[in-house]
């Protein structure tokens, strides 16, 4: 008998709850509060573990086969998460302005690959204009500070 996605998700939640639960056992009680900082987490994690176990068991007992999921392009999703992650990691180092322009250009080019020089021009224009508008709107009109680059000081 095989588990469906419900069963696997239940197992993941169960494992995470149990690991965190074990970690709460090392917490020292607080001097001024009668119940320690571990009491409520144990309550919540215990609840999560029981619910997740129930999900696994129900999935195990289920006789009906799950419907096949629609085919999706996971490669594109992983790629976009990777590009976004790279953007987030680069932000404090190269600064908001550079990182944002590069990110918008990269993400736009991946979503709608340019076929010729005009396509690349579109990507570049979009990235520059959008980056500049966001920067000026927040930094200059809304007094929201955006990260400066540690390497570039820009």
């Amino acid at each position: 008998m095989k588990l469906s996605r419900d069963g696997w998700a239940g197992l993941a939640v169960l494992a995470a709850s149990l690991v965190l639960f074990a970690l709460t056992l090392g917490l020292k009680p607080s001097p001024l509060v009668p119940i320690g900082p571990g009491f409520y987490p144990r309550l919540v994690l215990g609840l999560a573990a029981v619910l997740a176990a129930a999900l696994v068991i129900l999935d195990f007992l289920k006789t009906k086969k799950p419907e096949p999921l629609p085919r999706v392009n996971y490669a594109a999703v992983v790629l976009h998460f990777a590009v976004f992650a790279a953007y987030v990691v680069a932000l404090p180092w190269v600064g908001f302005r550079i990182a944002t322009v590069v990110y918008i250009a990269a993400a736009n080019a991946l979503l709608e690959p340019p076929k010729n020089a005009r396509g690349w021009l579109r990507v570049a224009l979009l990235a520059l204009i959008a980056g500049a508008v966001v920067y000026f709107a927040f930094e200059h009109y809304l007094t929201v500070l955006l990260p400066r680059g540690r390497w570039t000081d820009f």
Partner: peptide, 22 residues
């Protein structure tokens, strides 16, 4: 389970009463 996961997010980091790290 989704609700419980949300609650788990709030128990990470610091306890809200005394700020003890956990």
């Amino acid at each position: 389970i989704a609700g419980a996961l949300g609650l788990i997010v709030t128990v990470l980091g610091a306890d809200p009463v005394m700020g003890q790290e956990r």
